[in-house]
Every structure is written in structure tokens, then in C-alpha cells.
């Protein structure tokens, strides 16, 4: 896009700036719209599994429900508790939301549709997702209230625990792809096993995908790992003291994070924007469509799990993270690097 603006007579730096800003908007707005639709889809799937109707009043099939909710919270008053630390209390939801949008910069939507095609793309995603915890922790502390504080402590422990195993899982993928660049990782998955595009068909990487999916649920604080907002123990967790738009920002941030996890699952294990099979006619469908279909598929899994699996207890969560996922993923790094050395993958 930079070249286009340069051909319109702008100097390189101005053209780059304009192109980048337009790129950011082109990602941020569809993500926001996607979040609104995905909240609707989540409620609808959840309702169907509970044999209910779900939102069905606003708009056709209730599809405008999220927008109606958005307008509602926008018109409400932001209440700041008198004991709260005012500045931090207001920064926390903004931080959560910003961080949730930041990581989308490196996701390849097609082989040419990437805002920042950087060499350390995967590390960037890890770095940004590790920032996500601050929104929760700062909210819990600045609310100056007991339940949010418990929630903040849970969140910090939970996210650190699962980030460790996510790191090792990603190393397995990186070892096989030989790069940290997300676009190159997608390209490396082309006809990986026979005709199938995607690392998931690889028997050595399949268990890693399962663990990545579960760790992703824990990392985004989704059910069954939503201990940070366990309503039976902590009211609404770190969101207890929040109202109106600040509360809505947490919602949007949470779902944007879930969508990002779905996109990462698709990109790292299911061939991203590549079609499922390396078969020429499938390439006529644009890569963006394939990626969106995969994201929808993973989001359905996330909703499905939310509707069916009971919440974990805190000690079970820690046990799964530290005593199961960490040793297994560590072992898998050794196994995969050993296998790749043996077969001369790095030669």
C-alpha cells in the first residue's frame, strides 16, 4: 500500500505513515465488528446447547443484540468507587482493550495481507499476550475491594502458569517451521502431510495443538478456566466495580483475545490462510475466507466448551498447568528436536 501512496506523489515516509494508519484501521474495525458478532454467536450457541432461544428480539434473529447492548452501556454513567485509585481504575480497561487489539498487527490474513510482516512475529504475539494480565491486575488492585483483588491474584498466577507451556508449544512449531515469522510459518505448512495443509495432521504436533487449545482457553480466562470472574465465589471478579463503557471495554477485550487465540490456532496449526487441502481449485477461494472459516470453527469449539464443561477448581488449574502441561511440552520439545535432527530437517 505504501507504493500506491508513493505513486500518488507522497514522499516515502508520509506514504508509509498513511498506509500504516489505514492498515491499522482496516484491521481494528473488522475486529471490532467481528467481536460484536461473535458475542452474539457465543450467546446463541450457548443458548442452543441449553435448549433456549438466546437473543432473538433486536434485528433479524437478534443479530443486532450486541450493538443494542453497546449503545446501552455507552449511555450509562461511569461510576468510580470513592476508595478506588482513580487514574489506574480508568486506565485498566483501556489497557486490556488496547492490548487485545495490538497483537492483530502480525496475523497474516493472506500472503500479502499483513500489517507488520516482522521476523519476530510469534515472539511479538507472546510479548503482547503477556501484557494482557496487567489490565486485570491493575483493575483488581485499583478497585480497592476484596473480590477484585482476589481475582487479580488468580489472574496473575494463571496467566504466568499457562504462558510457560504456551512458550514451549510454540517452540515445537518454530522448530518445525524454522522461523518466527508468522507468514513463513503458514507457508511452511503447505502440504505438510501428504496433501493436507497444516501441522495438525502431523502426529507429533497434534498433541501440541490440543494443549495449545486448552492453554489458550486458560490464557484468555475463558470457561472452564474463568476463575478470575467466577461469579459463585467472586461476584464478577476484577470487573465487580466497573460499570458502563469501562465494563464494556473488558467485554470487548475478552472477546478480541478469544478471537486472537482462534486466529493463532488457525495460523499455527491449521495452515492459516491456506485451504485445508493443497489442491489447486481450493486456491480460487481467497485466503481471508479460509482464515475466517477456521476462526469461526475454533470459536465454535470455545463456545462449545464454555457451554458444556464445568469450571475448574483453582488447585486443579495449577496442577494442569505446572504438573501436566509443562513437563509434557518440555518433553515434546526434546522429542521433536530429536526427531528433526535425526531426519536431517536442519541440514
Amino acid at each position: 500500500m505504501t507504493a500506491l501512496f508513493q505513486s500518488m506523489g507522497l514522499p516515502f515516509e508520509a506514504a508509509w505513515l498513511v498506509a500504516t494508519v489505514i492498515g491499522i484501521l482496516l484491521i481494528a474495525f473488522p475486529v471490532m465488528l467481528g467481536v460484536a458478532l461473535v458475542i452474539y454467536a457465543d450467546r446463541k450457541i450457548w443458548a442452543s446447547m441449553a435448549l433456549r432461544k438466546g437473543p432473538n428480539v433486536v434485528g433479524p434473529f437478534g443479530i443486532l443484540q450486541s450493538f443494542a447492548d453497546g449503545i446501552k452501556v455507552f449511555l450509562q454513567e461511569t461510576i468510580i468507587p470513592s476508595a478506588a485509585n482513580k487514574g489506574l481504575f480508568l486506565i485498566a480497561p483501556i489497557l486490556t482493550f488496547t492490548v487485545a487489539l495490538l497483537a492483530w498487527a502480525v496475523i497474516p490474513f493472506d500472503s500479502w495481507m499483513i500489517l507488520a510482516n516482522i521476523n519476530v512475529g510469534l515472539l511479538y504475539v507472546l510479548a503482547i499476550s503477556s501484557l494482557g494480565v496487567y489490565g486485570t491486575v491493575i483493575a483488581g488492585w485499583s478497585s480497592n475491594s476484596k473480590y477484585p483483588f482476589f481475582s487479580a491474584m488468580r489472574a496473575s498466577a494463571q496467566m504466568i502458569s499457562y504462558e510457560v507451556s504456551i512458550g514451549f508449544i510454540l517452540i515445537c512449531v518454530v522448530l518445525w517451521a524454522g522461523t518466527f515469522n508468522l507468514n513463513d510459518i503458514v507457508q511452511a505448512q503447505k502440504s505438510h502431510v501428504w496433501l493436507i495443509n497444516g501441522y495438525v495432521a502431523n502426529p507429533l504436533l497434534f498433541p501440541m495443538w490440543v494443549m495449545f487449545l486448552i492453554s489458550g482457553m486458560a490464557e484468555t480466562g475463558r470457561a472452564p478456566f474463568d476463575l478470575t470472574e467466577a461469579e459463585s465465589e467472586l461476584v464478577a471478579g476484577y470487573q465487580t466495580e466497573y460499570s458502563s463503557m469501562a465494563f464494556a471495554l473488558y467485554w470487548l477485550g475478552e472477546y478480541a483475545n478469544v478471537l486472537l487465540m482462534c486466529a493463532l490456532n488457525a495460523t499455527l496449526f491449521f495452515g492459516g490462510y491456506l485451504p485445508p487441502l493443497d489442491w489447486a481449485p481450493l486456491y480460487y477461494v481467497p485466503g481471508l475466507i479460509w482464515l475466517l472459516l477456521k476462526i469461526c470453527f475454533f470459536f465454535f469449539i470455545f463456545s462449545w466448551v464454555k457451554a458444556t464443561v464445568p469450571r475448574y477448581r483453582y488447585d486443579q488449574l495449577m496442577r494442569l498447568g505446572w504438573k501436566v502441561f509443562l513437563p509434557v511440552s518440555l518433553l515434546w520439545v526434546v522429542i521433536i528436536s530429536g526427531y528433526l535432527m535425526l531426519t536431517g530437517h536442519f541440514a
Binding site: 507472546l126 501484557l131 491486575v137 488492585w141 496473575s156 498466577a157 504466568i160 504462558e163
Partner: peptide
């Protein structure tokens, strides 16, 4: 830069804050 964010901001500082 990424290591600085992952290690210091993402892990060390969280424990610090904790």
C-alpha cells in the same frame, strides 16, 4: 526487545507487582 517485554514485563514485573 521482544525478550525484554516477555521476560521483564510479562513475567518478572508481574511477580514484582504481585
Amino acid at each position: 526487545a521482544m525478550l525484554l517485554v516477555i521476560v521483564y514485563v510479562g513475567a518478572v514485573a508481574v511477580l514484582f507487582l504481585f
